[in-house]
Amino acid sequence: MTMDTKRKRPARYGMVIDVDRCTGCGACMIACAVENNVPPAQPEATDRTGITWVRVYQIHNGASFPENRTAFVPVMCQQCGHQTPCVSVCPQQAVDVDRETGIVGQMPQRCLGCRYCMAACPYHARYFNWWDPVWPKGMERTLNPAVAPRMRGVVEKCNFCQGRLHAARERAAAAGRAEPKPGEYVPACVEACPTAAITFGDLADENSAAAEQARGGNTFRLLQKLGTEPKVYYRSSRPWVHQVAQQDFGRRKKEEIRG
């Protein structure tokens, strides 16, 4: 094995999501489901049992009409870079952080479905297959061969479209390069976002647009104080968005309490 085929330095893939651009259209969720062979919902599924690797939350400033304001916050696996909560808890190493990409990978084939990682994840970015995946008859032809469908009883989550990374790496390998060039590998949600609200790239690469934006002002990360160093950044110029996204939950109003 010669040196030039080895990767030069580990990447730290991450994204910056411009909350001010997100219209909540859901294109990312659909593109993600299509790309990653996430099955359609079972009739009984709800927002609590469904699988959406990326979920667009609607946040409110808490005011009532007409002072109310809303923003959309897409939340996918935040690819925690430090003390990744889900990795250390998995009893059988079905979760790992790829040292070369910084991506937190979930191995459904190794997973026994104990769901401990779900309890550990403060971002609720992990989803359990409560049902066997079912596509309407004939629709299995539209599945993406780059991603294996999961079976019921395992946990899955966003992995920054590993299938696309594989494809990009294969193309790069065909061209004799060990790693795809910046821009050759982009997750489906990033590509699909109609407003280009998501900037994806290697945060370890100072010159990447993602790193630049992450460094820039107006960014925040969810639950920053937990110290998990997520690699998904959010930016907004609206002060209330920062306030709400970083406030503690105790200030929520009573009518929002369910149950």
């Binding site: 859901g26 969720m29 489901a33 359609p40 919902a41 469904g50 667009v56 009532s64």
Partner: peptide, 26 residues
Amino acid sequence: LSPVMSKVYQESGLRRAGNQAAVHPA
């Protein structure tokens, strides 16, 4: 609609599905 549109209707609260009514709490 494509069955995976369930992601935005049924599996998240992103879009209100048909015949879902929103009213001011008051």
